[in-house]
Design a protein around this nucleic acid. Structure first.
Length: 414
DNA sequence: TCTGGGGTCCTAGGACCC
DNA sequence: TCTGGGGTCCTAGGACCC
């Protein structure tokens, strides 16, 4: 059995912890630059407020109903998130931190307990220690935990789905739109095929699901049947890409202003790369005009770096070069960002370089590669220097005249 | 030059999540 | 005037090789 512990109206709850007078009052939290609503309290929801509403459209209405408005404060939310996780770790050891306001827990060591009661213990302890209200859903798979949690939020606070009867009754009236893994496209597809509830979806034939919704859809349906297919990830895998992007808050028309913005994003991306001990060979730079008025332009470019690096000056040089290539004079830009891709561990080591047409050197490098390959087995990875971005298993045939090889120093898990 | 099958790698784009 | 900021995974199709 698994549990999903999800904070209620997380950002709004964080703001309320230090201002108890806001209990029972409507609250909204705004995005960066106060662009739009990204969180709301139940009272705000009752007023018809929803995520994604642009601030400028609802400002009068917020004032009229005395809604308390906050600009987002991610430092505060991150801090509360850590406290909630620490509290949960006191209660159970197998925890996956799924997002800033959600944790999954594996309850396999707790089968002898009254799980409903245990769920209430988690809920009460988190509330008492951190001030944040949470809901708990307990079920045989993560997807069913999501269902249980949603039901818990409607009142009981904790919902346990531990028998086929309880699961069936939970799924019977559960709209497909609310299932974890069903977005609006799949919802539309399912509705068009007469599938409206989670129970109907669960009973669809495998081949139909596989054909229409790919293996991810099939996994989801198995999970609804109580067969866990999405494992608990206690140790999050290394990031594959890092994005730093923002709305500018106003229109930018000059190249030098765009360059300034891109340089600051790239600097931050490089910092995060170093924190996570990763290096990159590629960065993607893009910026775009408004989608809401006039023709839409989005310029983007993948810029290769001469070597694997997380060194800020290298990154900035490439960023500026890409920026100049995609900049178009006369447009008004509203948003942009920098993404680093193809991240690999920084301990990946430069091995050697094959020189063009130097057969002797090639042979000696290949011999060394073979040696490494034998040492780490089939899972040893190496990276080609030019043109080819992907990792692949080391093969003797890779005798290209120009490349640099690198590999992960640690043996990889099979 | 044409025929064809099988395989790998890469890219773009779609779909989803919070 | 003003509309978030992160991420992941999967598939189809093209290029290329034997």
């Amino acid at each position: 059995m698994y549990a999903l512990i999800d904070c209620n109206n997380f950002y709004a709850s964080c703001e309320r912890v230090f201002q108890p007078k806001l209990n029972g009052k409507p609250i909204v939290v705004l995005s960066n630059n106060d662009g739009m609503v990204i969180a709301k309290s139940n009272e705000a929801k009752a007023l018809g407020l929803d995520l994604g509403m642009p601030y400028f459209e609802i400002r009068d209405m917020l004032e009229k109903h005395h809604v308390h408005v906050f600009s987002s404060n991610y430092t505060l939310y991150g801090d509360f998130s850590r406290r909630v996780v620490e509290t949960l770790r006191e209660l159970t050891s197998d925890i996956e931190v799924y997002s800033i306001d959600e944790c999954f827990a594996d309850l396999k060591g707790f089968q002898h307990l009254d799980l409903l009661k245990y769920g209430h213990t988690m809920r009460d302890t988190v509330k008492q220690w951190t001030g944040i209200p949470v809901s708990v859903g307990i079920a045989p798979s993560k997807t069913l935990c999501k269902v249980a949690n949603k039901l818990a939020k409607k009142g009981p606070g904790v919902v346990l789905l531990d028998t086929p009867e309880k699961i069936d009754s939970a799924l019977r009236d559960y709209p497909i739109e609310d299932i974890w893994g069903v977005g609006w496209q799949r919802a539309r597809l399912l509705r068009l095929n007469g599938v409206g509830t989670a129970l109907q979806l669960r009973n669809m034939p495998d081949h139909w699901i596989r054909k229409k919704m790919s293996v991810t859809g099939l996994r989801m349906v198995y999970e609804l049947r109580g067969i866990p297919c999405i494992p608990l990830e206690e140790h999050p895998p290394a990031k594959k890409q890092i994005i730093c992007s923002r709305s500018f808050g106003h229109f930018i028309t000059e190249l030098k202003d765009i360059e300034e913005a891109m340089v600051s994003y790239a600097t931050r991306a490089a910092e995060r790369m170093r924190q996570q001990k990763l290096v990159t060979r590629d960065i993607l730079v893009w910026f775009e005009t408004s989608r809401h008025n006039g023709p839409f332009y989005c310029g983007s470019r993948v810029q290769g770096l001469p070597r694997m690096t997380n060194y800020t000056p290298d990154i900035l040089k490439a960023t500026l070069s890409a920026t100049r290539k995609i900049f178009r004079k006369g447009l008004r830009y509203r948003k942009g960002g920098v993404m680093v891709l193809e991240l690999v561990p920084a301990m990946t080591r430069q091995f050697d370089m094959l020189l063009p047409r130097n057969e002797e050197k090639q042979e000696s490098v290949m011999a060394a590669l073979d040696k490494v390959n034998r040492k780490y087995g089939d899972n040893t990875l190496f990276y080609a220097a030019t043109g080819i971005r992907r990792e692949w298993k080391m093969l003797r045939q890779m005798k290209s005249p120009h490349y640099t090889t690198q590999w992960d120093e640690l043996p990889l898990a099979v």
